[in-house]
Design a protein around this nucleic acid. Structure first.
Length: 461
RNA sequence: GGCGCGGUAGCCAAGCGGUAAGGCAGAAGUCUGCAAAACUUCCAUACGUCGGUUCGAUUCCGAUCCGCGCCUCCA
């Protein structure tokens, strides 16, 4: 499996080093995730699936960040405890993941369950002279860490510009004291606004900073060096840059072998984000009648390294395209007299018998080129011989790879069925006026009657 | 200002040195009482613009014009 690595900016083969640790930065749970967030999680999910199929046996960890400024503020506004508030949104996130058919990570650690590990890591950094305490807060001393900026590829003079924004103004330093604006908080001393959210630490009451939880949890579950770390492109700086500094600073070992970053989804050419308010949640799209599978399809229709522009039209196109795969599935199942459940289950890993869908698999192996893979899939479909040995197994692996779940063709309710029989008889009797009026009735009940040679088919509209 | 990404048919989107995958939409045909479905066929002399390298460039190099992202919370 070949994948672009953000650190070296090169397409590299993924290390076969075991165990294969794969850490993904999960959501901060203070509201519903939007489909831009899910672009990243779906891409990571397909990568996970590809790794499984390729025999990497990945250990997949995705965290839940359940303490930060926003979660504290919103929980107070909602009049709920932080725990109760974040639990609600965590559950909602997991429900959405389920609907989108995302494989469950092997571990889904929460930041607040790993305060001890975070404190230990901070202590280590203080011991090594990379962090300092000031008024009960602890900061990372960027100047003391020579490799800082290697992921972002910032030169020392450019580091200076990090403390100013595009308008040339100095970025807000927040209320905490630090020696240098580049330094970032590892531990934040408790203040009145935090209410009852605090933990005891060697530096007094407080809470962890934003970046430390990912360093602590990833190393806790996957070891001090692991293979693959993923996230949205916006996390490169400062989040991942800081994770590297914290982790490598504390252990003196390489933190991550391969960095995987996914580009943003845009809406009408603009970044979709909470602060811009131009976002769709999964719920929004479901209410408009789009299937979660078509959302999944759409989000895979562009390469992860390219921005993908979302429109409702393209979602409709995705739904149409997907239905062709579904039709093929039904044709295949009927032809081979196979149960639907046979293709909706996981194959055994590794899967190596790629045959008619080999071009699709190869496109995935080559830097996770999902749009090309989908293209190859559609090129293959019309040519597939349904009697190809092992085709069911291969098709099952293909569906697993993309994470598409095939639905059984819906059967019409009795009332519709009766009308359909009546119409069929009218048609045989060449009473076309009656036949047409019955067709209209059937349609008004939400079904379409498709005439075959000797029988008819009913399709849900 | 620094760092980075992109501009390919009506829309979406691969390809990245040898003459443009695929999807959606559209058109025609077969079939059909009609319709739909299915199947077959068609649909970019052309890859932002201008130069350069090359036998040959959408693909490499330079310039240029647009669009976008990060540098502040963000997937």
């Amino acid at each position: 499996m070949f994948l672009k690595d953000t650190l070296t900016r090169q397409i590299k083969e993924l290390s076969r080093e075991k165990p294969f640790g794969f850490y993904c930065c999960g959501p901060t749970v203070y509201g519903p995730a939007h489909i831009g967030n899910f672009r990243t999680f779906i891409l990571q999910d397909v990568l996970r699936r590809a790794l499984e199929l390729a025999g990497y046996a990945p250990v997949h960890v995705r965290n839940i960040t359940d303490v930060d400024d926003k979660t504290i503020l919103r929980s107070q506004q909602a009049g709920l405890s932080l725990k109760k508030f974040t639990e609600q949104w965590t559950q909602r996130f997991l429900d959405d993941c389920n609907k989108l058919n995302l494989l469950s990570p092997h571990q889904q650690p929460r930041a607040t369950d790993h305060i001890v590990q975070q404190i230990q890591l901070i202590q280590k950094l203080i011991e090594r002279g990379l962090a300092y305490v000031e008024n009960g807060s602890v900061y990372f001393r960027v100047a003391a860490y020579k490799d800082y900026g290697k992921l972002t590829q910032l030169s020392p003079e450019n580091l200076r510009t990090q403390s100013t924004n595009s308008a040339g103004h100095v970025n807000d330093v927040d209320e905490y004291d630090r020696d240098n604006v580049r330094d970032f908080a590892l531990w934040k001393a408790h203040k009145a606004d935090d209410g009852d959210v605090f933990w005891e630490s060697p530096w007094g009451k407080g809470r962890p900073g934003w970046h430390i939880e990912c360093s602590a949890m990833s190393m806790h579950y996957l070891g001090e060096t692991f293979n693959l770390h993923g996230g949205g492109i916006d996390l490169i700086f400062p989040h991942h840059e800081n994770e590297i500094a914290q982790s490598e600073g504390a252990t003196g070992k390489p933190f991550v072998r391969h960095w995987f970053h996914t580009t943003h989804l845009t809406v009408d050419g603009k970044k979709m984000s909470k602060s811009l308010g131009n976002l769709y949640t999964l719920e929004d799209l479901e209410k408009q009648g789009f299937s979660t599978d078509s959302v999944r399809y759409l989000l895979l229709s562009g390469h992860y390294s390219q921005p993908l522009n979302f429109t409702l039209d393209s979602l409709g196109a995705a739904q149409s395209a997907l239905s062709r795969i579904e039709k093929f599935a039904h044709k295949l199942l009927e032809h081979t007299r196979t149960e639907l459940s046979q293709i909706n289950t996981s194959p055994t890993f590794p899967f190596t018998q790629w045959n008619v869908f080999k071009p699709t698999w190869e496109a995935i192996q080559n830097d996770m080129n999902t749009p090309q893979a989908l293209g190859e899939l559609f090129s293959s479909l019309p040519q597939v011989d349904l009697d190809t040995p092992g085709l069911i197994h291969e098709f099952r692996a293909l569906l697993f790879l993309f994470g598409f779940k095939m639905a059984a063709p819906q059967s019409a309710p009795e009332a519709v069925l009766q009308l359909a029989h009546q119409r069929w008889q009218a048609k045989q009797a060449k009473d076309f006026a009656l036949a047409d009026s019955l067709r209209a009735q059937i349609q008004s009940l939400g079904w379409q009657m498709l005439d075959g040679k000797d029988s008819f088919n009913l399709v849900k509209l």
